[in-house]
């Protein structure tokens, strides 16, 4: 794959221009309540900049904290599964079940337990980011070259040494792949949590989407959706950068591997 900086900027930019043109064309044929044009969305962004910014920050905070909690629990449980087959047998089915739990259905419970707003968004983001991280840790920690494990055993390495110097580093590529999935999901999770478990204090992107749709302010809805997409992009980019920094030098196909 070629990845000159100019091309890697120009290609997405060309797509963006194409999408904008198609969007404007389509919007000019539809009433604004169905599809606001790029110009009116841009107006909404500029006019409501302060509200959008505060909402995006609140959502980013919830997504980030949720991702942190989901990752910590997922990775911790992954190590637990590595060390205890019994724990894996006992807990894995429920972890799977948790993944299918619709946040919408339990949002009222989350509100009762945690209160309105950010706590529900954090819990919802943690809930959706937990499973990809658990799977990644599980696969990554087990997917070690058996001969390397033998090597460590031969030198009498402890379980902790084996984890720290062999399994954890060798799981990093899988964990980062999981993190990329989880990072995007955490933003969606936070927004869903806000959508069903927010009372507008503080304002958040999920709340803005809900509120603006109710008042038929589609331009603001789109602005909030675009802010959410930017947020997901930033989170993904951060995960990707951390990945390239940490494992790029040695893991083929990541970051530096394409150069």
């Amino acid at each position: 794959m070629s990845g000159t900086p100019a091309r890697s900027m120009a290609l997405p930019a060309a797509v963006a221009v194409g999408v904008l043109v198609a969007w404007a064309g389509l919007a000019s044929r539809l009433p604004e309540v169905l599809l606001p044009g790029p110009i009116s969305v841009a107006h909404a962004v500029v006019d409501r900049w302060e509200l959008l910014g505060r909402s995006a920050l609140s959502t980013a905070g919830s997504a980030g904290l949720g991702l942190l909690i989901g990752s910590a629990v997922g990775l911790g449980l992954g190590v637990g599964f590595l060390w205890s087959r019994a724990l894996e047998l006992a807990v894995y089915p429920y972890a799977l079940l948790l993944q299918t739990l619709p946040v919408v259905a339990v949002a009222p419970l989350l509100v009762v337990w945690l209160g309105y707003g950010a706590p529900v968004a954090v819990a919802s983001a943690a809930l959706v980011s937990f499973f990809p991280m658990l799977t990644a840790a599980h696969v990554g920690l087990l997917g070690v070259d058996p001969e390397q494990v033998e090597l460590f055993r031969l030198y009498g390495a402890s379980r902790l040494q084996e984890l720290r110097w062999l399994r954890a580093p060798s799981a990093l590529p899988a964990v980062f792949a999981g993190l990329r999935t989880a990072a995007g999901l955490s933003v969606i999770g936070a927004i869903v949590g806000e959508f069903v478990g927010s009372n507008g204090e503080p304002p958040s992107l999920g709340y803005l989407v809900l509120r603006s749709a109710r008042s038929a302010d589609t331009a603001l809805t789109f602005a909030a959706v675009i802010a959410a997409a930017c947020l997901a992009g930033v989170v993904y980019w951060a995960a990707r950068t951390a990945e390239a920094r940490l494992i790029g030098p040695w893991h083929p196909g990541q970051g530096g591997g394409r150069a």
Binding site: E147, Q148, E150, L151, L154, G156, P169, S170, H251
Partner: peptide
């Protein structure tokens, strides 16, 4: 003693990182 025994595998099995 510790390290008194060493094994060289068919593949080098180096830690890539």
């Amino acid at each position: 003693g510790p390290g008194g025994r060493a094994f060289v595998f068919q593949s080098p099995n180096l830690l890539a990182w």
